[in-house]
């Protein structure tokens, strides 16, 4: 860690090492988790053996890459993919979609599917992509209904459900 910090003067090389450093940290963290498991049990090899081996393997590979990031460079591929300059419009969109994902995780715990669809459509279709808010709301509600009735009721999949979804489902039973 301290070793990498010493190279701050060369930001390009630090940037290249950063992902591998993150990986090394994660591997060591997982190795630390696996450390307490028995590596041998009465049935033969125990529950700990394999995780200890795989996490140690990851740590070694990631460590090598931190030391010699050149080994990860591909000769023919340049920075054409993904590394293009982006303007403020794209930055705003990326932020909106980036926030939408954690929202989905929270909404599946708390809000139920219909409210989730409506909020999502409002946030993305209206907020980020600048379509009319009415259209977005109707679209979101329709998606929500289609999810509850089509997927949950007709197809036997399940969607996050609260009082609202359950009362709609009861109408069909």
């Amino acid at each position: 860690m301290g070793w990498a910090m010493g190279r701050v003067a060369m930001p390009g090389r630090v940037k290249e090492r950063l992902p591998f450093l993150a990986n090394l940290t994660l591997s060591l963290l997982l190795l630390w988790q696996a450390r307490g498991l028995d590596s041998w049990s009465i049935l033969g090899p125990g529950p700990g053996l394999f995780p200890q081996l795989t996490t140690a393997f990851c740590a070694v590979v990631a460590g090598l890459l931190v030391l010699f990031p050149g080994l990860a460079r591909t000769p023919d591929k340049s920075a054409e993919d993904g590394e293009t300059e982006i303007g403020p419009a794209e930055r705003r969109l990326f932020l909106a979609y980036g926030l939408a994902l954690p929202f989905l995780a929270l909404a599946s715990v708390f809000t139920g599917f219909i409210a989730m669809s409506a909020f999502l459509a409002l946030a993305l279709t209206w907020g980020a992509e600048r379509r009319s808010w009415r259209g977005a709301l109707v679209f979101g509600l329709l998606c929500g209904l289609a999810g509850v009735v089509g997927f949950d009721h007709l197809l036997g999949a399940s969607v996050p459900a609260t009082v609202l979804e359950q009362s709609i489902l009861r109408l069909f039973r």
């Binding site: 979609y97 939408a100 994902l101 989905l104 995780a105 599946s108 715990v109 599917f113 989730m116 669809s117 999502l120 459509a121 993305l124 279709t125 980020a128 992509e129 600048r130 379509r131 679209f139 979101g140 998606c143 999810g147 997927f151 999949a157 399940s158 969607v159 996050p160």
Partner: peptide, 27 residues
């Protein structure tokens, strides 16, 4: 258009994941 397709994709993904493993799987 993406304005409508993206929410649709996200919601389909949520249904798929939620059916398979519940709210924690979505996280």
């Amino acid at each position: 258009p993406r304005a409508y397709l993206s929410p649709l994709i996200l919601l389909l993904c949520v249904i798929g994941v939620y059916s398979s493993g519940g709210a924690s799987a979505v996280t």
